[in-house]
Nucleic acid binder design. Structure first.
Lengths: 202, 202
DNA sequence: ATCATTTGTAAGTATTTGCTCACAAAAATA
DNA sequence: TATTTTTGTGAGCAAATACTTACAAATGAT
């Protein structure tokens, strides 16, 4: 007679995706503290041992999610920054894509900002750094293009404006954590973009 | 013969301050993960039991630090927002005071942004909300004053600009965690203030 | 000087954590 | 069909965590 009844098997590839999704669900719903491997296993619907069949360590799961962000968000933004459309239009698209991604992947926000500083893990911080600095520098590139193009005020400091720009997605993140219901997220990117445009106006 | 040698005693008031300082030191130096009561006791130089003589729970320590932020930072900003000086000058002072506070209390940054979302603790989130929204609304008040005064463009949305404004201290926080050495923090508030001014210009 | 109060210690506690292991069973391959 | 490989289970592990407790010693009031 069988010892375990109705065991559902899936490939490691599929399970890895399920596990990563479950991580974000737990963080978004219950907070980072509840992201134990036990809870994670329950969320996925497998045993705790199975989790470690598909990932060597819990840390590997987090790192893999960070790699996803790099692949999905950053590489998309890189493409946009290189598109052959006028800088104003390009910067707008760039900002709105960022905002959309953050709205669609809300668990990631907490994961990125909390986990790295929580763990104080050098490799994690490096990945986070990569994500942050690429977002910033690619935005800076578009701004530089617009200035070189003659569209925008050349006296504006690209570095400084990139810093201010980065405040937009980050504030969005914070507002989503703190004011999730009150926050007016419609046209958020448009409204913020108008401000950036005004700064860049000759 | 004495069982313990050279026991240094201090009042609960003093110890509470020492403990709270130690919390920020540990977070700043080793990350939130290393903020165990055991490490905390070692950092202060007392036994773990003594920690619980001065605070009932570890959570109480964090809450008390958050109350300090409200008392030290927010109440100071409130006063500035009510000062009888021209809005541009007032907003500049407001921003620079915020920046200075954040630079001088770097452990607090991580504590505020990570701990609350880590614990997913309603009361903690409420305090964080209070800190965030007051900073934002008081800045908004100064902007409104300037518009009412006739100095600034009345077509600017105060709510939206306050959101953008909040990006400044928050980005500063992130940069301090990620780029601590490279980050150019001199005149940071001035450079950011110039951007806000340009947006507000008629 | 006596004694209650306060502040300290050291050695516990129960619980949770990330992770391992021996083995069961489904799926792929021969 | 027979065998190997992959995916699963559930019990259990050492280490860490927040917190407690019994008792020691310093301090302040009488």
């Amino acid at each position: 007679m069988s010892k375990y009844l109705q065991m559902i098997r899936k490939s490691t590839d599929l399970r890895q995706e399920e596990i990563k999704k479950a991580v974000l669900s737990i963080i978004h719903r219950d907070g980072l503290k509840n992201l134990s491997t036990k809870n994670l296993a329950r969320e996925v619907g497998i045993s705790e041992g199975a989790i470690f069949r598909h990932f060597n360590t819990k840390r590997d799961i987090i790192m893999s999610i960070m790699d996803d962000v790099i692949e999905d968000l950053i590489e998309n933004l890189r493409k946009i920054s290189l598109e052959d459309i006028p800088p104003p239009e390009r910067l707008f698209k760039y900002l709105c894509n960022t905002v959309t991604y953050l709205l669609e992947n809300q668990g990631i926000t907490i994961l990125l900002f909390s986990e790295a500083s929580y763990e104080n893990d050098a490799e994690m911080l490096e990945k986070l750094n990569y994500i942050f600095n690429n977002q910033k520098q690619l935005a800076g590139k578009i701004i530089s293009d617009g200035i070189a193009f003659g569209t925008w005020d050349e006296s504006v400091s690209v570095v400084d404006l990139s810093s201010l720009y980065m405040g937009i997605p980050i504030t969005l993140n914070i507002e989503l954590i703190l004011n999730r219901e009150n926050f007016q997220q419609e046209n958020f990117c448009k409204r913020m973009f108008e401000f950036i445009l005004k700064i860049l106006k000759k």
